[in-house]
């Protein structure tokens, strides 16, 4: 399945520079969020904010084809 993965702030560098943090990732059907994190080689214990289709995910849910996944390091402002 194909996932629309969007990485932000310091995580942008995981993808080639010209992608500006946004790329399509192909994973096996039935893959979970943890699988994606592993695929991206983000350290397991890194604190992250993850949004799947605009909703924050805390559990290791199963992903579906076409999901839009945004991953952020801890950020803030106001």
């Amino acid at each position: 399945m194909r996932l629309e993965v969007r990485l932000f702030a310091t995580l942008r560098d995981i993808f080639p520079k010209e992608k500006r943090g946004m790329d399509l990732v192909t994973l096996e059907l039935g893959s979970t969020l943890d699988d994606l994190i592993k695929y991206l080689k983000i350290p397991e214990d890194a604190p992250l904010i993850i949004l799947v289709n605009g909703r924050r995910q805390i559990e290791n849910i199963e992903l579906a084809d076409g999901d839009r996944i945004g991953i952020f390091p801890p950020v803030g402002g106001g």
């Binding site: 702030a9 950020v75 402002g77």
Partner: peptide, 14 residues
């Protein structure tokens, strides 16, 4: 980290 490096505008994307 977040605020010094990216300022508050880091919120646009999130």
């Amino acid at each position: 980290q977040g605020l010094p490096l990216y300022g508050t505008a880091v919120l646009i994307n999130i």
